[in-house]
Amino acid sequence: MIRHRPGILEIDSYVPGGSGSSLRRAARLASNESPFPPVDRVAAAISASIMQANRYPDFESRELTEALASRWRLSPDQVSVDSGSSSLLRSIVTACAGPGTEIVYGWPSFASYEHAALLAGATPIRVALTPDHRLDLALILAAINDRTRVVFLCLPNNPTGTTVDHTALEAFVEAVPGDLLIVLDECYGEFVTDPNAASGPRLLGRFPNVVVLKSLSKSAGLAGLRIGYALSSPDVGSLLRAVRIPFSVSAVAQAAALACLEPAVTAALESRITATVSERKRVYDTLTGTGIEVIPSQANFLFLPHQHGAPEKVRLLAQHGALVRLVGPREIRISVGSRRENDHLLSCIDPLTVIPPHSAVTGQ
């Protein structure tokens, strides 16, 4: 037996959504992906960059970093690019936490917060959501103590799709000790339509302990290339650069992301986001119209609480080619897909409207 850290094999692994590879015409709504392939200009950039695959990528992602800094009106040392926001949040925990420290976050939320804490030897602290499935900022603040090193706030929250008012977030940040890192995970921020919703970039100038995570997986349709970035103070940027994995962002991902920042491509992506938001409303209205409880969402997915027999319902939907995600014993998350995928889902929602016969006995 290889000697290893105690408990490492007991950490629950991240469970991805179903890919639907065995169902040719499946509605792939279990993972929060974009249903749209890269636009032509991005595809061309990807093709061109492949011809340099024999060379290492730019270690610093300089061109992309400078373009992102210009986009957010920051200095380049305030932008950190990595292979997805999951890599960034692990780097944050690695740099700031370890045995004897704590990581605080709302629950349910993104499972990688807990994974990152456990892998670093820190203690994860779950804080229950409010009755309307939002982050409870008051309870999170009460959970902070001298052992706390990082607070993760997923806004909009995954899997519930909810956010908080910006004024409430600002008051929370003001109340948190300035030497404690507050990570605002805004990987679904582009889908927010509420004008009063929390906005991390608006806080960066005032609070050097705030980090904002952004993703190009969802809004830009680059999930398969793994690229995300963090906006922060220069000091936090130095921490992230100190612990990053060398050459973690491929040349292909850098080229694709850079192309996404071109004005014409940005306009095309905004049109796709608008289409997703429109489909979100259509699916929400249809589901709630049949009596299914759905939480109003600001993300590219919908959360269904109180689904008795949820595992059986997910299985039955999969049999009909609609792949959705079980996120708790009685909770289901449905990503917003293409219009065709959403139509397919809505054509086979009967399992969501009934309680499976065995659920009353098993409590499932």
Results as ranks from 00 to 15, higher is better:
Leu68Gly: 11
Ser215Asn: 00
Asn300Val: 03
Ile11Ser: 02
Ser347Met: 11
Ser85Met: 06
Glu262Ser: 06
Ile50Val: 13
Ser250Val: 06
Thr101Ser: 15
Ser91Lys: 11
Glu279Arg: 15
Leu240Ser: 14
Ser21Thr: 13
Ser22Lys: 14
Ala322Pro: 02
Ser86Phe: 10
Thr94Pro: 01
Leu302Asp: 12
Val39Ala: 12
Arg147Asp: 13
Thr286Met: 11
Glu279Lys: 02
Thr276Asn: 05
Gly224Gln: 13
Leu304Asp: 06
Arg325Tyr: 02
Ala275Val: 11
Ser61Trp: 00
Arg73Ala: 14
Arg339Pro: 00
Val176Ser: 09
Arg3Glu: 10
Cys187Leu: 12
Val79Cys: 08
Val79Thr: 10
Arg244Val: 08
Ala230Glu: 02
Arg206Asp: 11
Arg226Pro: 00
Gly321Glu: 03
Asp194Val: 03
Gly7Cys: 11
Ala26Val: 00
Tyr229Asp: 00
Leu213Pro: 06
Gly237Leu: 08
Thr65Leu: 08
Glu190Phe: 12
Val39Ile: 10
Gly121Gln: 03
Arg272Tyr: 05
Thr130Pro: 09
Thr274Pro: 02
Ala322Cys: 13
Ile227Met: 06
Arg62Ile: 05
Glu279Asp: 11
Thr130Arg: 10
Ser248Cys: 02
Ser109Asp: 13
Pro263Asp: 03
Gly291Glu: 05
Ser215Val: 01
Glu331Gln: 15
Ser86Val: 09
Ala257Lys: 01
Ala259Val: 08
Leu29Ser: 07
Arg73Leu: 11
Pro356Leu: 01
Gly205Trp: 04
Gly363Arg: 04
Ala44Ser: 14
Asp136Thr: 09
Tyr229Gly: 01
Ser109Gln: 12
Ser217His: 15
Leu326Thr: 06
Gln52Gly: 08
Pro195Thr: 06
Pro329Asn: 14
Val183Asp: 09
Phe247Glu: 09
Trp72Ser: 01
Gly178Glu: 13
Leu137Ser: 09
Gly291Pro: 10
Val277Ser: 06
Leu304Pro: 00
Thr65Ala: 12
Leu180Ser: 04
His166Gln: 12
Ala45Glu: 07
Leu269Ile: 12
Arg282Pro: 02
Arg71Gln: 14
Phe152Asn: 01
Val93Leu: 09
Leu153Trp: 07
Leu317Val: 03
Ala223Trp: 07
Leu231Cys: 02
Asp136Tyr: 09
Gly18Ala: 14
Ile2Phe: 05
Ala69Ile: 03
Leu64Cys: 03
Ser232Phe: 00
Leu258Glu: 00
Gly228Val: 05
Ser359Asp: 12
Leu287Gln: 11
Val150Arg: 05
Gly221Arg: 07
Pro208Met: 10
Asp343Gly: 02
Arg226Phe: 10
Ala198Met: 09
Gly98Asp: 07
Ile11Thr: 00
Gly224Met: 07
Arg25Met: 06
Gly237Tyr: 09
Lys313Val: 13
Tyr105His: 15
